[in-house]
Amino acid sequence: MLAEKYPEEVKKIFAKYPPEQKRSAVMPLLYLAQRDEGFVTKAALEDIAQMLDITSTDVAEIVGFYTLYHDEKAGKYRMQVCTDLPCALRGADKFLEELCGNLGVKVGETTPDGMVTVEAVMCLAGCDKAPMFQIQSPDGIAYHDNMTVDKTMELVAALRKSGKEVK
């Protein structure tokens, strides 16, 4: 239950919106619900629905519509590489291909140790710093700009060692 587990944060979230508009809290509550497992569980859908007086289907459609919410478990760190036009003009496709080769996974797959899932995503507003990606993890989202495959492999090694996000 989010309200019991994160009472301070839940209170802060509700304080942002008019009391009669609590449905607005659905997006920040979903981020909170994803914190532990990296995805939104069925139980969390029910919990949030009850908090906001909406149905769990209403909550599920938000999870389905927005790409940063997930309904399935993946690696602890989702490495989301931008391959949109401006990044691709600066080598993002090649970067992604080589990175996958080094990690021994295909796009969308997770490394066998369950640490890193590699994803190709749409524009991240880092077009001048390509190749670039973001890492979505229980700690939030962090940008990694001007990357090379070597630098990325060092980052992955550090993640594996510490289990925590490093910048």
């Binding site: 919106y17 920040p28 790409t67 524009c123």
Partner: peptide, 10 residues
Amino acid sequence: IYTHLGAGAY
């Protein structure tokens, strides 16, 4: 003033 985060939708 309040911030509100979207979740990936152009």
